[in-house]
Nucleic acid binder design. Structure first.
Lengths: 168, 168
DNA sequence: TTGGAAAGTCAACAACACTGACATAAAACT
DNA sequence: AGTTTTATGTCAGTGTTGTTGACTTTCCAA
């Protein structure tokens, strides 16, 4: 990959439209693979990707409020409510009224919810681990750097919520 | 990032569940950014992502058949047909009966279709170019390597259809 | 000529998003 | 105390994108 040092000190990348298009297609096909394993598990439970996303972020931040989840997922409350209703009715998520602020609902995974989340997470992590292994150690940091730069700035803070351990 | 040389010669990566989870979330948030710009353009034309995907791959392989497009996109013919019907009715795609095999329909972009595809492509390439620029030259290869490893093997050949120019 | 593949159509359905309107409770503000 | 804002939930309607199943037309090939 050609690169140059510009006068201002910025690294300049010369990328052809073809290279960029391949990157776009890589995102498209990779995302299909990324969701393939969880989708199979979810089908068996008659749930969809929206439920997986809710389970994931409730697992990551137990006790999170509906509003917080809304801003992370970027959907309407009506859409999220439908998903949460299913998860609560299925006994996978527990919704508890806030103690400090009684308007808020704090969301937790039940034991069954945690078990399903684990099943989904293990499948998806295994795919990710395998991809990392095939791509090699150096590739992982590049992968993460490009993805982070691709996010909308307003969404990036959700990603950086929990400081990661890339440099351990 | 820690790595070791195993007896068999495989590079072993020790990745914590936390690191893998961050990779998963990075995919989630990045994909949102990845589709954000085209989505805005598509809204103005009253089209959706499915139309974008069809336009993209018809542009990449002019004259492709419906069946080929089906296997690339991984949807049912009924679903694709609805999308193609819209694109043809809107004068963005031209469907020509095959000369050798008259059952086949060969798909081409009209001038208007090519113009819209360009508009979408430029927006998405610009996002990709910016992400590459921020992440730096070394990151690009890692990004591509991980994404390629993440694809389902059956889908990877679609990606590799056209040999790319990563090593120019 | 018969069988099967390719393409298209029609109908029904489901997941998941959207808007808009409205309700309730609680917190916050004036 | 009274008003406004916030957090959540709910009802109704709509749209995109996917699914299955059934059926037809076209047409190549054994």
């Amino acid at each position: 990959m050609t690169d140059m040092q510009a006068p201002g000190g910025h690294a300049l990348l010369f990328l052809t439209d073809e290279q960029l298009r391949k990157g776009i297609e890589a995102m498209f096909f990779a995302y299909r693979g990324f969701t393939a394993d969880p989708d199979r598990i979810l089908d068996a439970h008659k749930l969809g990707r929206a439920h997986h996303r809710a389970l994931h972020f409730i697992s990551r931040a137990p006790g999170t409020t509906v509003n917080n989840l809304l801003s992370i997922l970027g959907v309407t409350k009506q859409s999220l409510n439908r998903v949460l209703r299913t998860l609560i009715d299925d006994g996978l998520v527990d919704s508890r009224i806030g103690t400090r602020d009684k308007r808020e609902r704090h969301l937790f995974l039940t034991d069954a919810g945690a078990a399903l989340e684990q099943e989904l997470s293990i499948a998806q992590r295994e795919r990710m681990r395998q991809a990392y292994r095939e791509a090699g150690p150096d590739a992982v940091q590049g992968f993460r750097a490009v993805l982070e730069a691709m996010m909308d700035p307003e969404l990036r803070h959700h990603f950086n919520r929990v400081k990661d351990d890339r440099n351990d």
